[in-house]
């Protein structure tokens, strides 16, 4: 097990013990939410993991680095940023996906752009966001997020 996994589990366990001491009923409620969210996310995790397996084996590494690698330049970054903005998958799963893209030759810039747009921009949730926040605020937030995603990605490409 990797240290990050150990850390998060120990941390969760400590919080859980403190919670149990403080309030049993509330802790039970929390655990029900945890189990429900876990069940809810498992199919998506499995889909992504199967796709990652297929992606790494069936798409030749040359292909991914041609589309989103260093030499693909701005168009590769833009392509991944756009896919991140459109796709609707939990950000939790974007990390292994990003890692597998990196492994198969995508550039840091492109992967960073993908992860930032994926987490910050919700095209599918946009109607709800407009309804709750108004058109101006929702569109500004998503639009400017796209621009800053590109800026963050380029800075990361330079420093990493």
């Amino acid at each position: 097990m990797h240290s990050a996994a150990i850390f998060i589990n120990i941390f969760a366990l400590i919080c859980l013990i403190i919670a149990l001491i403080k309030d049993k009923a509330k802790t039970k409620q929390s655990l029900i939410i945890a189990v429900k969210s876990f069940i809810r996310i498992i199919p998506t995790v499995l889909i992504m993991i199967l796709l990652i397996g297929l992606l790494l084996e069936f798409v030749p590494p040359g292909e991914i680095s041609r589309i989103a690698g260093e030499q693909s330049g701005f168009s590769g970054v833009l392509l991944l940023a756009l896919s991140g903005a459109i796709m609707h998958i939990p950000s939790l799963i974007s990390f292994p996906l990003g890692a597998s893209l990196l492994e198969s030759g995508a550039s840091v810039t492109a992967v960073a752009a993908f992860i930032v747009t994926l987490t910050m921009i919700g095209t599918i949730t946009l109607p709800l966001e407009i309804k709750e926040l108004g058109k101006k605020m929702a569109l500004l937030r998503n639009g400017i997020s796209f621009i800053i995603a590109l800026v963050i990605a380029f800075i990361m490409g330079v420093i990493l």
């Binding site: 029900i32 939410i33 292994p96």
Partner: peptide, 26 residues
């Protein structure tokens, strides 16, 4: 490959979910 990624995720998810549940209630 799929199995390795699955094992990674399955080890890390319980902690994440428990924390989410705790914070949602508290």
């Amino acid at each position: 490959t799929s199995r390795d990624f699955f094992i990674e995720m399955i080890w890390i998810l319980p902690g994440v979910m428990v924390l989410m549940g705790l914070f949602a209630v508290w």
